[in-house]
């Protein structure tokens, strides 16, 4: 039984390694600054719930979170719809020139965002999108398309073609075949797509750093950066900000964790 015990010891060590930093920061969010300095690791003696309220209002976290939700509300459906359409066509029919189209999309998967960010920044500027919500939303949608198209294509390819053909014989148009028959069948893929894109969008950092520099456009990720700049000595305030930013996504994760983990593995394996 010793191997079994030592196995649990190692597993538990890593459990602590992954969990402790968060517990530490969350508990710091409820302490005063003097308490953080005096006793960084103890639990808060008298929880300062006011810290969270301060971060929400004074730290403008309410605004930042609202922006993050707004970006998710536009980017996730945007990428999903476009990727489903393209993935469907590329996965279920042999279009002349399909190889080249796939090659083009594949290129977008292989190169990092940093490869295109310099010219893209000036493109967004020249299109007069800089300083508006669209300046963040549109490039984010474009950035998700390559991966999304390939992901959805791999799901549509697995559907039997006969189903669509049967509907066509009954006189259904191409749009009807897609929206009423094929798309509902690809639902597992759709869920994966939405979960992954939600996570990418919630976490995006460089795009809002470039295109959302305006105070009013900042999502949580870059918002915290500026927040730290302003309150660099106010540790309880920073901890409160981190808590506000991490708790919503962790709650979503815990509720939907099966989809997150399956999505990430199947997304990677596809």
């Amino acid at each position: 039984m010793t191997t079994r015990t030592s196995r649990y010891v190692i597993l538990a060590m890593f459990l602590v390694l992954f969990l402790l930093p968060f517990v530490w920061i969350w508990s710091s969010a409820l302490k005063s600054n003097s308490e953080i300095n005096a006793d960084p690791f103890g639990l808060p003696t008298s929880p300062q719930w006011g810290n969270l309220a301060d971060a929400w209002t004074t730290g403008r976290f309410g605004k930042y979170l609202g922006n993050t939700v707004l970006y998710c509300a536009f980017v996730v459906p945007g990428v999903t719809v476009l990727s489903c359409l393209a993935g469907y066509a590329l996965g279920t029919r042999r279009l002349p020139g399909e190889r080249y189209l796939l090659g083009l999309f594949l290129l977008g998967i292989m190169i990092p965002f940093q490869s295109i960010m310099v010219p893209q920044y000036y493109l967004v500027r020249d299109l007069d999108l800089l300083g508006s919500y669209w300046g963040v939303i549109v490039p984010s949608i474009a950035l998700g398309l390559a991966f999304g198209t390939f992901l959805m294509r791999s799901f549509f390819r697995e559907l039997p073609e006969e189903i669509g053909n049967a509907a066509r014989l009954d006189g259904a148009g191409e749009w009807r075949v897609f929206s009423r028959i094929m798309l509902p069948l690809a639902r597992p893929g759709l869920i994966t797509m939405v979960v992954l894109q939600f996570m990418f969008t919630w976490n995006m950092f460089l795009i809002p750093l470039l295109y959302g520099q305006d105070e009013n456009l900042r999502p949580v990720s870059t918002g915290i950066m500026f927040f730290i700049g302003e309150y660099s000595v106010d540790r309880s305030m920073i901890a409160a900000g981190v808590t506000l930013a991490s708790v919503p996504i962790i709650v979503v994760y815990l509720v939907l964790q099966r989809h997150f983990i399956q999505g990430m593995t199947s997304g990677a394996l596809k």
Binding site: S83, A86, L95, L104, G108, I111, I116, V118, P119, Q120
Partner: peptide, 29 residues
């Protein structure tokens, strides 16, 4: 022919956005 045309129509929106915001900057770089 009909299926082919509709196939391209399905790809078009994604391709247009992708070409303008990803491929064009890639060439520009």
């Amino acid at each position: 022919g009909d299926r082919r045309v509709s196939g391209y129509l399905f790809v078009l929106p994604a391709l247009a956005v992708y070409a303008l915001f990803i491929l064009y900057p890639l060439v520009q770089s």
